[in-house]
């Protein structure tokens, strides 16, 4: 069994496929749609319309960039407020045309720069979560690498949440946690363990509905499996009315909480 610290390092490896790689494999004739219609276009989030196994869908993905110049262009996959606002614009559009939404998330978190604060990073994420919770069309999220806190949840308030087997999902970066707890950011492994961040932890806690096997050597086969999972989930979800979908999503998240009376 791998430790949480080892999983964390694997989830962050540069050679993992990026969000755009999944879109290329899974979505036929994708048309990328840009911009939030408010401020700008955030390259850290890519979204558009295309066909998934014959079903028109809206796809939204974070992307860290494949090489250094692309990484800089995409801000290492850390979205800014305009990224979340673009995502919400595309989700509303999907809702209008009754298209399902498929999200792929791999981000260390929302961008923590002064520019993001000025443009309301908190408000953008809050609106995204609120919007997703009430969305009257199916939405499925797959966490493919790092699920970094609110910046990941902003694209993961979904009907179904899947994780790749070495993906992680965490309320705070293990480094940040270690520095708060022990004033020592090098105790990453201990913090990762304490936080319970692995896909297997998420399955156990009910945060993830399923864990998807990774096989990057056979990426085509791996994506065929993802396509099958998405297709079978959509077959179920597209039969449900928008109102009932939102109600089901509410119940899905309503149950999270462990406390004493």
């Amino acid at each position: 069994m791998m430790t949480a610290g080892e999983k964390l390092r694997i989830a962050r490896m540069n050679h993992r496929p990026g969000g755009v790689d999944y879109i290329k494999k899974l979505i036929d004739s994708p048309i990328e749609l840009h911009g939030d219609r408010r401020f700008g276009d955030d390259p850290a989030i890519v979204g558009g319309i295309g066909m998934l196994n014959g079903i028109p869908v809206t796809y939204i993905t974070t992307d860290k960039g494949a090489d250094l110049s692309e990484r800089i262009e995409r801000n290492f996959g850390c979205p800014k407020p305009e990224g979340y606002r673009k995502a919400m614009r595309l989700m509303r559009q999907a809702e209008k045309f009754q298209r399902p939404v498929i999200c792929f998330v791999d981000t260390q978190g929302a961008w923590c720069g002064a520019d993001a604060e000025e443009r309301g990073q908190g408000e953008a994420i809050a609106e995204s979560i609120l919007g997703m919770m009430g969305l009257k069309t199916p939405v499925i999220t797959i966490l493919t690498g790092e699920g970094g806190s609110g910046g990941a949840l902003a694209l993961a308030a979904a009907d179904r949440v899947y994780m790749l087997e070495n993906a992680i999902y965490s309320v705070i970066s293990p480094e940040g946690c270690a520095s708060i707890l022990w004033k020592d950011s090098s105790r990453v492994n201990d913090a990762a363990e304490a936080l319970h961040i692995t896909a297997q932890d998420m399955k156990e806690l009910g945060v993830a509905d399923g864990v998807i096997a990774e096989d990057f050597e056979n990426f085509d086969a791996m994506c065929a499996n993802i396509r099958d999972i998405l297709t079978s989930e959509l077959a179920k979800l597209t039969r449900v009315s928008g109102e009932l979908l939102a109600q089901g999503r509410y119940e899905r998240f309503r149950k999270f909480g462990i406390f004493e009376k």
């Binding site: 809050a126 979560i129 609120l130 919770m133 009430g134 806190s149 609110g150 949840l153 308030a157 999902y169 965490s170 309320v171 705070i172 946690c177 708060i180 304490a194 936080l195 319970h196 961040i197 932890d201 998420m202 806690l205 945060v207 999503r249 509410y250 998240f253 309503r254 999270f256 909480g257 462990i258």
Partner: peptide
């Protein structure tokens, strides 16, 4: 912010409360 001592479950509270806010607003 979120209470990191409760791990991912604290993050899920953001979605839970938001859902209830949305219903109230609707």
């Amino acid at each position: 912010g979120a209470r990191m001592q409760e791990g991912i479950i604290s993050l899920m509270q953001m979605a839970k409360v938001s859902g209830a806010v949305g219903k109230h607003s609707d």
